[in-house]
């Protein structure tokens, strides 16, 4: 924090202050919050902000991860390091287990991403969580641009975009009925570039796959997917070694990487500052199905 003679705060300091305020409001007003953590850069920034909000006390809520069993191992390493350092309680909701228990149905056609929705809602219900922090940002996508910081979900976990509570000043309304819960987005006003500037400023650990590295990849549907047990070359496809990095992390079967030489935070920031394609458009198969893909998944209870 750099303070100035004229009492100005940089925009990054203002965003940080707003997010910390949100974390504290939720912890004070909602009974059982949980922080949803994918291990990606946004959820790691959330962990940092939550750490700052309650320091020197520990996080007053657990961390929840939905394990798709197709998560990048590098991401799980970073997640574990963070959870260990913070002394936080980790709750893992496994998609495989949800399938075995009949919570969700794997018909072979539904992507893991969609199966995560049922798994997540079940975990929230089972844990009795009344508020779930998510790392969503309004600059990510058009439907998110209209979502509140406190996003009310009915007893089915659904979002009703036409019936949102007005959100004024910094007065958040966390009222709930039994069975309902709140999704809370402390990073709503952050942009992708802000996230990177903050990671650079705070010098915090993020998964190594965000930095340029050599990787065996398969070009498919205009994306570069990481070759693995889960993603095997189909007829006519080739496995090639390229220098790549990931702009978002998610399910390995759906998350593509981009060719990049950016192997430091400074180079990544330079690359993002001139990027001409959104991070989701570049690398997320799950958002490509229709113009309203994100809106539909959000209504069902997606992060």
């Amino acid at each position: 924090m750099s303070t100035h003679a004229d009492y100005r705060l940089t925009q990054l300091d203002q965003l940080e202050a707003e997010s910390i305020h949100i974390f504290r409001e939720v912890a004070a007003e909602l009974e059982r919050p949980v922080l949803m953590c994918s291990g990606g850069k946004d959820s790691i920034v959330m962990l940092r902000l939550a750490e700052k909000a309650f320091h020197p006390a520990k996080l007053p809520f657990p961390v929840l991860q939905v394990d798709t069993s197709f998560d990048f191992p590098e991401v799980l390493v970073a997640r574990d390091n963070w959870v260990d350092r913070l002394g936080a309680r980790l709750v893992v909701a496994s998609v495989d287990e949800a399938i075995r228990n009949g919570v969700v149905v794997d018909d072979g056609k539904t992507s893991r991403n969609r199966l995560q929705i049922g798994t997540l809602l079940h975990a929230i219900e089972e844990g009795g969580f009344t508020a779930a922090f998510g790392g969503g940002r309004r600059d990510e996508e058009k439907a998110r641009a209209k979502e509140r910081i406190y996003s009310h979900r009915d007893e089915f976990g659904q979002w009703d975009p036409k019936n949102q509570r007005p959100e004024l000043w910094s007065l958040y309304n966390g009222r709930l009925h039994a069975g309902e819960h709140m999704r809370v987005f402390p990073l709503s006003n952050w942009t992708e570039l802000d996230i990177w500037h903050y990671i650079a400023r705070e010098r915090i650990e993020i998964p190594s796959i965000y930095f340029a590295h050599e990787r065996k990849v398969i070009a498919r549907d205009g994306m570069l997917l990481s070759a693995s047990d889960a993603v095997q070359p189909r007829a006519g496809e080739m496995v090639e070694e390229r220098t790549v990095r990931f702009r978002t992390v998610g399910d390995m079967t759906l998350t593509g990487c981009v060719e990049s030489q950016a192997d430091t935070l400074e180079k990544i920031i330079d690359e993002i500052a001139v990027a001409r394609v959104t991070e989701r458009g570049a690398t997320r198969g799950d958002d490509r199905f229709s113009e309203a893909a994100m809106e539909d998944r959000k209504k069902e209870g997606y992060f």
């Binding site: 641009a145 209209k146 975009p161 942009t191 309203a292 809106e295």
Partner: peptide, 22 residues
């Protein structure tokens, strides 16, 4: 700026939308 499906269909803006530029 019209983010929701019903907004695009009806050609109207329903809700406050937040935009970011620098």
């Amino acid at each position: 700026t019209d983010g929701l499906r019903s907004e695009r269909e009806q050609g109207i803006t329903i809700d406050v939308a937040y935009r970011y530029f620098a």
